[in-house]
Design a protein around this nucleic acid. Sequence first.
DNA 1: TGATAGCATT
Length: 827
Amino acid sequence: MPSPHVGTDRLLPTCKGRHFPQYFQSHGTHHQLYSTSASCAQVWYHDVGSENKEIDFEFLFESCTKTQLAKRLHALLVVSGKAQSIFIATRVVNLYASLGNVTSARFTFDQIPNKDAYTWNSMISAYVRNSQFHGAVNCLYEMFLNSQVRPDFYSFPPVLKACGNLLDGKKMHCWVSKLGFEWDVYVAASLVHMYCRFGALTVAYKIFRDMPFRDNGSWNAMISGFCQNGNAVEALDVLDEMRLEGMKMDCVTISTILPACALMDDILQGKLIHLYAIKHGLEFDVFVSNALINMYAKFGNLGHAHKVFDQMSVRDLVSWNSIIAAYEQNGNPDSALKFFSGMQSNGVQPDMLTLVSLASTVAQSRDCQSGRSVHGFILRRCWIVEGVVLGNAVMDMYAKLGIIDYARRVFEEIPSKDVVSWNTLIGGYGQNGLASEAIEVFNLMEGCEDIRPNQGTWVCILPAYSHLGALKLGKKVHGRIIKDSSLLDVYVSTCLIDVYGKCGRLDDAMSLFFEVPRTNSVPWNAIISCHGIHGHGETSMQLFGAMRDEGVKPDHVTFISLLSSCSHSGLVDKGQWCFHVMQEEYGIKPCLKHYGCMVDILGRAGYLEKAYDFIKKMHLRPDASIWGALLGACRIHGNIELGKFASDRLFEVDSENAGYYVLLSNLYANVGKWEGVDEVRSMARDRGLKKTPGWSSIELNNRIEVFYTANQSHPQCEAIYKELESLTAKMKSLGYIPDYSFVLQDVEEDEKEYILMSHSERLAIAYGIISTPHKSPIRIFKNLRVCGDCHNVTKFISKITEREIVVRDSNRFHHFKDGVCSCGDYW
DNA sequence: TGATAGCATT
């Protein structure tokens, strides 16, 4: 029975038919059949040339690890006449199937003349093992139509598995019942598993309950069904029942139940199961070890995860992926990268999931060069086209690396974008401070009919609204969320609290805060920070007290919010107390942001030397924000020497930020040291520094109007400047003197006055005045800090126009009313 | 004679 697809590879050119023995003769007696690669060398073919010795086919079957080898073995079987046996032919079908080659399996299958049930069942499972589920179901129908053999107990388990994947199994269940196979333990377990795949847990559980006999596999099917639908409690209940009935957990049970322990946050249960595995000698099973690595990683216990990984004698792709993900998800990108290179040097080929972890790792390591390497690696394998998940991960990586244009490009290249792709791009723009672009993309997404926003979308778009102060747009989304979903996700609620708080609606933020479940720190952090930026430091402290009373554990973000609240309100003692409590009571190590707040608190309050001593005692290297805080404090308190020292340190670590030059120039100007002002100006000029363009925005008629400094292109430009000129005249009659120290350019005085007048916040305020009813309040947002002159001017404007003016800048809120600011000029 | 099946980890 010559087989045309056999023996076609060029290393065995004459192996067809009867030429085959001659091939061996020409190569002597001891002959290595599979000599193409080292991994195949284990398979030897002994003494074919000397006719009296038998070929060890059993050994050859065992040793086939590649389709090419299987084809040679198949050829050998054909030549030796053994392939005519239906038993041997069926084994060949199974061999091809196990190597992932369904085509060859089917070809061999078709060549077999009198197929029996064994043969048909093997072909069915060949399809299922290779995820060709329609093929499996069709093959069963084919078998049924072939009147000589009937489907039996062995036919249905793989077909039911296929049905589970195809999400269509009612008809098959009827058939199984009709044939009376329902009570076979394998068939019933397959039914249980299939219904669990559909999420029909009640039906699955009923079948499971009614089983007359349950083996380990049946229990495992039910437990895994609950686990995979996220019902960890039920899974653990069934496990208890199983053990009460005297059944022992096996490798499958353990690798199924460990993720449920992680889901339940039940580390004790997880450790007990680990102990059980050790006691019963199951700990070195590759599935069990992998599941243990994943569980310990979820509990943040990298030591245990690493130990399990180290003790493994056999590691597969999942083991490497798990240990890489463990380090990546616990914020240790360096170790994750080390394991990735370890994986490569061990000859394990990475898959798409490896690259998803790797992309996140690189995003954390802030290494743009590696980012490109990862992208290149993926591009060479065309993986972006294959799976949207990897494309999304690469987008996220670029967004986190701050290369948002690349993220956009990857987004454009993803053929079937899902809601996560959109969310990632929206969030990416948001994280890079491009709130308007984020909103633009969100609007584009709204135009896509097949994409529906989810909770993740709201978490990405709402901060963009907070950032621009788009209260009305935020409220619109709030309405939609209430309409769409009965249940408010804690993260979405927190974003809404943030929108209301940052749009100046503290009362609305508070009432929303009281509605959400407050069991984790996230909503607390938001509400504390909102009160902080409004200058209500005492309220922030009271909220912290309430948080402690309710038993909610604060995290490092809580303390950043608290410390910045203290700094905005001048609460020196309370700030120091927080800094102490954070370390002593909660064991949180201060990061640069905490230190920055402390320098700010001390410095603003006038304890400049204390602030400097504090910096000297830091266990982290001070960055620009730390020296910037000290410099800012020196400006307020007119300390030239320390200010000069701080700015020297500052420009060592960041010489590009124009804001710090303005600060220093302002310090000199305040004490009348004009030569210092000139020096700073020339420094700034020499370095050709890139200024962050200042802008302010105002929300009118459901639109956000953005004004850039000295913007002349607005349609109402003329009216705006006219209004400002008239206001300036009135202010001067009330005693306003422009403070030119906020002007960095070296120009004539009248031009300096014009520059100050063109500051974006003034343009926005003037636009508000001419576009809204008399005496109505005005809300302005500015991306940088409001300059001292603008702050002073706004006080005058609030008095002249009898309007309440709320300005939120990059730092905090300023409420102006009757010529006074709520911050008491302390900001 | 022999060979075919369910439940497991990122």
